[in-house]
């Protein structure tokens, strides 16, 4: 290690100490609670497996997460691909429009979707006025509403990730394909898509991990009918004082997320995409 590297390392120590004190230590406490509350042992983890209500909560979480991820990544890919090819001025405008919802609180966005999607909301009343439907569609207070809200929340994140990845792709490769006579679809399927696959997977991973933690959106747009894991944990911590089960569930989620990220870093291309670009 050079003199400079030792100095650089020393400079990270305060941040490292802060992380240990305010992040790692509380997480270890949570881990400890899962083995000690209300009685020492593995009882809480046994309950995660045997309690049918918790199984249903986890299944609901999967049922919401899968479509959310697929839709978010697909739509975001389209937007990101378009942005990469835009002229700089337009691209700035597009980037601004992507970032606007990014800055609005999740609570406000959930209430805004309620206004849009409710039975007397703008979507239903427009469709009814046009005579396309006779009864209002159930767009909200079910899994559909939760997916809509979550996709909207996740898209700016996914677009930014995919945009970074796509703009790293060497444009001379595209020009080469074109000069060799490839048509649009061929360029997309044989050049863009394979080169952006690691970025797509990283964006998907990101959406999946975030979806596990969604609390406000399912609570408001699901209105009690869509109980996801983060809300379940929150109820056990704040209301029922079932801290043992809540911490066991949190710990398991943390491990699951850790495993997903670890698996992703096994693959060199994914690792490069996770670390942000290949330069």
């Amino acid at each position: 290690m050079s003199h400079f590297q030792r100095w650089a390392l020393a400079l990270t120590l305060p941040a490292g100490a802060l992380m240990l004190a305010f992040y790692v230590y509380p997480i270890l406490q949570v881990l400890g609670l899962s083995f000690s509350e209300p009685t020492p042992g593995l009882g809480n983890y046994a309950e995660l497996v045997t309690n049918p209500a918790i199984r249903r909560v986890l299944w609901t979480t999967v049922q919401v997460t899968v479509p959310t991820t697929l839709i978010t990544v697909t739509l975001s890919y389209i937007v990101a691909l378009a942005m990469v090819q835009m002229a700089p001025g337009r691209r700035r405008l597009a980037m601004f429009l992507v970032l606007v919802p990014f800055w609005i609180s999740v609570l406000v966005r959930a209430f805004a979707w309620i206004t849009v999607l409710r039975r007397r909301g703008i979507v239903n009343s427009t469709l009814q006025d046009l005579g396309l439907i006779h009864k209002p569609l159930a767009l909200i207070y079910n899994e559909l509403g939760v997916v809509i809200g979550m996709v909207h929340y996740m898209m700016p994140f996914a677009i930014l990730l995919l945009y970074a990845n796509l703009s790293d792709i060497d444009q001379s490769v595209i020009r080469a394909a074109r000069s060799l006579g490839a048509r649009r679809w061929m360029i997309f399927s044989r050049v863009w898509l394979p080169l952006s696959l690691p970025g797509l997977l990283v964006a998907a991973l990101f959406v999946v991990i975030f979806s596990f933690g969604f609390l406000v959106t399912p609570a408001l747009l699901g209105a009690g009918r869509v109980l996801m894991v983060a809300e379940y944990i929150s109820v056990q911590i704040s209301n029922t004082l079932n801290w043992g089960v809540a911490t066991a569930l949190s710990t398991s989620l943390l491990v699951a997320v850790g495993l997903l990220v670890w698996l992703a870093t096994r693959h060199p291309a994914l690792r490069a995409a996770l670390e942000g670009g290949r330069k």
């Binding site: 209500a53 909560v57 009690g224 109820v235 209301n239």
Partner: peptide, 15 residues
């Protein structure tokens, strides 16, 4: 009974 009934209720309404 709050904890037990609350959890049963949440489970019931979200099925």
């Amino acid at each position: 009974h709050d904890a037990e009934v609350q959890n049963r209720f949440l489970d019931f309404i979200s099925r």
